[in-house]
């Protein structure tokens, strides 16, 4: 019991085990798996990252002029790093940083409309395919005429 009292007394002066957040930042180790970043200029738009992503946190929206728009949802991402490992140009087109997404209170930030975007991407892809096919057909029709 006396030992217990001594221990309790000593504990009063020990450094606290918790972090005084937000005054003190959390310790994040090197190579922590955080947010995914993308560079439009380096990407070759192969869509591999979209296909391998387990939760579907990367979406490419097809535009009618052939270009694509990269969309990323950090609140759906499980930070597995699979996309970066499979990207043909890792660390150039796609890389993982050491920061994570912070919690958010606004609907816009947490990408509330992500699932409608998913549908939009699907539709855009089908439309683009049709568009391309019709272009091809019209080219074929044009050829004999000329």
């Amino acid at each position: 019991m006396i030992q217990g009292m001594i221990n309790s007394f000593c504990n009063l002066f020990k450094k606290s085990a918790t972090i005084d957040f937000p005054n003190e930042q959390m310790k994040i180790s090197k190579n922590y798996r955080g947010l995914i970043n993308h560079s439009d200029s380096d990407c070759i738009w192969c869509d591999v990252c979209e296909k391998v992503c387990p939760p579907g946190a990367i979406l490419f929206l097809q535009n009618m002029d052939g270009s694509k728009k990269y969309n990323y949802n950090p609140y759906l991402c499980i930070y597995c790093g699979e996309c970066v490992r499979n990207c043909p140009k890792p660390n150039e087109a796609l890389w993982q940083e050491e920061n994570i997404a912070f919690s958010s209170s606004s609907k816009k930030e947490v990408q509330d409309d992500w699932f409608s975007l998913e549908d939009e991407c699907k539709i855009a892809r089908v439309k683009y395919k049709e568009h391309k096919e019709s272009l091809k057909k019209s080219q074929k029709v044009e050829q004999p005429l000329s």
Partner: peptide, 8 residues
């Protein structure tokens, strides 16, 4: 592994 809980 780069993560505390889900190591992947």
């Amino acid at each position: 592994t780069g993560n505390r809980v889900h190591f992947d």
